[in-house]
Design a protein around this nucleic acid. Structure first.
Lengths: 224, 224
DNA sequence: AACTATTTTTAAGTATACTTAAAAATTTAT
DNA sequence: ATAAATTTTTAAGTATACTTAAAAATAGTT
């Protein structure tokens, strides 16, 4: 299946995880194409039995479409894990490379990469990696920094973003998957979170505190 | 530049290395497209200043086209080197993966891979890897097995093929880049070469003895 | 409930990378 | 040297994945 198809299916999958209003417009915005193109593609994918399409209704992946999305996501996250482990590159660069490589990777190679890495369950962003059957076994106990408690210490479990500026900020301040941070203050009214990382105090606004996910220090979720 | 363009330029480059009759037909055969499509593409690439095109004449890459070809070949051979090192996969499978990955790899990532591998000068087939400026410094002293001397021992330096059957044969008999083999007999009249690998005697016909390249045992070319 | 704004859809058109069929030129063989 | 074979080119057409513009339907607002 083509890159355009895989990306469309992936975008539908990801959107459906977040909202329950997955219509062509949102996907178009996500992929940077026109609404017309998205509607067009949706119709074509319905013919290929990748999603259910009815005029003006929500887009819903079929079982087949779901499998395809999970397979692409698996490859993306495996590539991120491999590149992160092997090379000194920014998470943002790694994400960009994985975005391309994910479409040109055989199942065989994906399995080899997974095996090499010890079949990891999370990528460097903390996102779960579906297994070869598309199954995500991990129960995610993490929550956003904005909901963390003052005075407590946490472990970063996800950096949920594609934004270069965010990753640059993270890299600069030691905000990295697996690292330990302490929440020194929650400014509820102003929606800011103050944290301590590597003995540096940083103030995060809502944009950032809601895309950084953490786990309790003693969490069972730290299996790598 | 698109995958089709990169593959076309690469095919022209490779053909020009072998023959001096690089016309659309040969490229078409190489890429598995029609002659018409090859002529068409040649015209388009001329507009992009990637090759010189004149009706019925040979296709000749411009400096820009040459650079593009070398860049793609570099990425291909780096991927082959990396996959060969990391994973237990057949050379044929590795070749197929590299054929796809080569088009989706930034220069940055290519450099990272090269660095990680210690900037190798040869890939697992023994083919030279252009450096980041497209320069191939290696002087190749290797020759085909068909031209080797009876009784002498050699080191395999290139397996020049894309053919799965050939690679399966190689894998089965220990014919691998860097391995040592002895030529026990040359059947000049019948164009066969008898070799000894791992204490096994194998008879190779012309098809195989002309795509297996070797170096003298004491060669200076064994720099990895 | 009706008007407005937004979204979705349809329709028509574009670029890329092919295809087949036939014409034109070149190459090969006698 | 000329006919036959092959290759190259041109021409017309297709599928994919988009675009813009306008019509149709839905959603939001008062």
């Amino acid at each position: 299946m083509s890159v355009a198809v895989e990306n469309f299916v992936k975008a539908v999958y990801k959107n459906a995880k977040r909202t329950n209003d997955t219509k062509p417009g949102i996907i178009a915005k996500e992929l940077g194409i026109s609404n017309a193109a998205a509607t067009d593609m949706a119709k074509k994918l319905a013919v290929k039995d990748l999603l259910h399409y009815e005029k003006y209704q929500e887009l819903k992946l079929t079982v087949k479409g779901n499998q395809m999305a999970l397979n692409v996501i698996r490859k993306h996250r495996l590539w991120e894990s491999l590149l992160f482990k092997m090379f000194d590159m920014s998470l943002h660069d790694i994400h960009r490379e994985a975005e391309l490589l994910e479409h040109q990777t055989s199942d065989l190679l994906a399995n080899k990469i997974s095996e090499y890495l010890g079949n990891p369950k999370f990528d460097p962003h903390g996102d779960p990696i579906p297994d070869k059957n598309g199954i995500i076994t991990t129960t995610d106990t993490s929550f956003t920094l904005s909901k963390a408690n003052e005075g407590k210490t946490y472990i970063i479990s996800r950096l949920m973003s594609d934004d270069k500026e965010f990753f640059d900020f993270c890299a600069q301040h030691g905000l990295k998957y697996g690292n330990t941070i302490t929440v020194s203050k929650q400014f509820i009214k102003n929606k800011m979170t103050q944290i301590v990382v590597n003995n540096n105090t940083i103030l995060l606004n809502e944009d950032f505190s809601t895309i950084i996910y953490v786990n309790e220090n003693e969490s069972k979720n730290v299996q790598h």
